[in-house]
Amino acid sequence: MKKLIFPLLVVIASSSYGILSTIVKVAMQYGFTTAEAITSQYVVGFFLALLLFVVTQRTLPKVNKSGAMILLLAGSLTATTGIVYGHSLNYLPASLAVVLLFQFTWIGLFIDCALHKRFPSRAEGISLIFLIGGTIFAAGIVDVDLSAIAWQGWALGLLAALSFALFIQINSRQVEGVTMISRTFLVSLVALIVISVALTPEIVWNGQLFGAGLWKFGLALGLFGIILPILLFSIAVPKVGGSLASILSAMELPVAILASMIVLKEALSILQFVGIALVLIGMILPSYLSMKKDEKKAAQKVG
């Protein structure tokens, strides 16, 4: 049962990411832009992390050079993923943008294989087939004409996938002497700095954040897009490894589709339902086969 805890935390973290697109769409219905909503996520997320840090820690940890580099990269990649994915939506339909983002599953697996100088296992390969096929069906692009898509859209979509895959890999590295709450605070600080340079930090002083009510969406986005994923990924990814974490993070897609269906009343086709089922099978398969393998080894030792 203990072996299931850390994979479950990865699933919860990725599921929280899946809610973000729906929250952003609702914010847009209230007249806010995508850039304003995303910026509010990182601003409010930082203050939530700061509050959590002050209440529980209060003292900044001493970090060596390698640890500081891990935290810097984690924060930068967190922000970069949001920025690049947001820009990709200027060129891509939302469904195709989701498909391109979810290429992080095989990108993350291959990065992990390269770092550990190994080939993908049979279970990982079969899982990727389910994940990629399920993603295409679930996103509803089977009958979509892609001939008019600009190359910038393809490039930005795949760059967002690479950024997210690297973020997961970086979070598989532990930082000595840094608690998970301190790590969440420092990563959110770096992410806020990057976002402030790239997007719209003026929402803090032009009245949009508090006067116009953007903070309500920022609170939800900060909780589900900063606090929960950074904290849970920091705890769980070092335990499950980068390759399995990439596969389990595919839970973001089914959650995104279901959230849109429930909140935004978007229709769910039979093909999308089949796609969600394939993604879930692809996620569960590696953990299931690993458990069976461990049980077999245990039985052989007893015998």
Rank of each mutant, 00 (worst) to 15 (best):
T39P: 03
A212L: 09
I257M: 01
V10A: 04
G177H: 08
L146Q: 05
S147P: 15
L20A: 13
V98P: 00
R58Y: 06
L278V: 11
S260N: 12
S163E: 03
V274K: 07
K216L: 14
I5W: 10
L8P: 01
S95K: 11
L92A: 11
S40V: 10
S196R: 01
M28I: 10
L244A: 07
M69D: 13
W106H: 12
N64E: 07
W106G: 08
A250S: 13
D145S: 06
Q272M: 10
S243N: 12
S260C: 04
G140L: 06
F110P: 04
L186W: 02
S121H: 02
L268Q: 08
V237G: 04
Q41T: 01
L264Y: 06
A191E: 02
A267K: 12
W205E: 09
Q169G: 10
K216P: 01
I281M: 11
H87I: 14
M69Q: 10
L109F: 08
F46N: 06
I12K: 05
Q41C: 03
M28L: 11
L186S: 03
I23L: 08
L60R: 05
A245F: 01
L285W: 02
L214Y: 05
S66D: 03
H87Y: 14
D112W: 06
I12H: 07
R58M: 06
L186F: 03
K62Q: 13
K117C: 11
Q169N: 13
T33G: 14
L228E: 10
L128Q: 12
S196T: 03
F224W: 02
T78P: 07
V274G: 13
K265E: 14
R173F: 14
L285Q: 08
H116T: 14
F104T: 02
L109N: 04
S163V: 01
M180L: 15
S15V: 06
L228A: 13
V197S: 10
K117A: 15
R122Q: 10
